[in-house]
């Protein structure tokens, strides 16, 4: 670009004042956390056993949920973006429902499906004696349920923007659909997949409502960082709750800055 509009620093007050109010509403709670944070005890609390256990579980489950989302979400996005199956608009709408659904409702829905008396769960229980609630698997499922739509939406967008004629050309050269997907489509949408996966991971890490409803809360098994923070508040241990909150905000901010700076622009 050789031509750029000169910067204009004047903002009309009609816009500036509500903008500052909006910004304050977004930033003040976070500033409040930082203000309230017990900085002197911060290092000790960060390496306290409950925090470290929750952090380890959170990183593990969020990563597993992201892997699961990639495995199912990328092909799903491909179908939504490329195929002409009937009823795709309905499927697309349903896939994005968890984005706006209260996570607690998601947790109840998961119980109805995979719980002991659930549609699939009762069947799993009878045939294999497997019960999902209260296990780490339940945490991963809850996180996947809530976070996978982020990945699907990001990858579908990338696939739509990507030129599908590359795929046609590859096909005329004799490539099989799988080879085309692997060597042509995937590299073209890799930035979109990466951005989607990071968003998905961040959302999974922050998952609370569906997890506590579907998986319960037990240290080391199902009690992730947000649940640990909730327990800390319930137990009146505000310091730990604040430390956990600051930790989560730090992770989120790092991820969003990284996404802004790199992959968002690349897609």
């Amino acid at each position: 670009m050789t031509h750029r509009r000169p910067h204009d620093w004047r903002v009309p007050p009609v816009i500036l004042v509500p903008a500052l109010v909006g910004l304050g509403l977004l930033l003040l709670p976070m500033a409040g956390l930082l203000w309230r944070a017990p900085w002197a005890r911060f290092p000790d609390l960060l390496i306290s056993e409950s925090v470290v256990t929750a952090l380890r579980l959170s990183v593990m489950t969020a990563t597993a949920a992201t892997a699961l989302s990639l495995l199912g979400g990328v092909p799903l996005a491909w179908i939504l973006a490329r195929s002409r199956l009937p009823g795709l608009t309905v499927v697309r709408g349903l896939v994005t429902v968890p984005l706006v659904l209260p996570p607690v409702i998601g947790g109840v829905a998961l119980l109805m499906a995979f719980g002991r008396r659930g549609v699939v769960g009762s069947w799993l229980d009878q045939l294999f004696g497997v019960s999902i609630p209260f296990t780490t698997v339940a945490v991963v499922l809850a996180q996947t349920f809530v976070a996978m739509p982020f990945l699907v939406v990001a990858v579908e967008g990338a696939l739509r923007t990507a030129d599908h004629r590359y795929d046609d050309i590859a096909a005329t050269l004799g490539a099989s659909p799988w080879l085309i997907f692997r060597r042509v489509t995937l590299p073209a949408v890799a930035p979109g997949i990466l951005a989607g996966a990071v968003l998905c991971w961040a959302r999974a890490l922050g998952e609370f409502g569906a997890t506590i409803t579907f998986a319960g809360s037990f240290p080391g098994t199902t009690r992730t960082l947000p649940l640990e923070a909730y327990v800390a508040i319930g137990a009146g241990d505000i310091d730990t709750a604040v430390v956990l909150s600051v930790l989560m905000i730090g992770i989120s901010v790092t991820i969003l800055i990284a996404l802004r700076g790199r992959w968002m622009r690349a897609t």
């Binding site: 009690r223 327990v231 137990a235």
Partner: peptide, 8 residues
Amino acid sequence: AADTLATD
């Protein structure tokens, strides 16, 4: 032998 520890 708890499987979940509820806050509430």
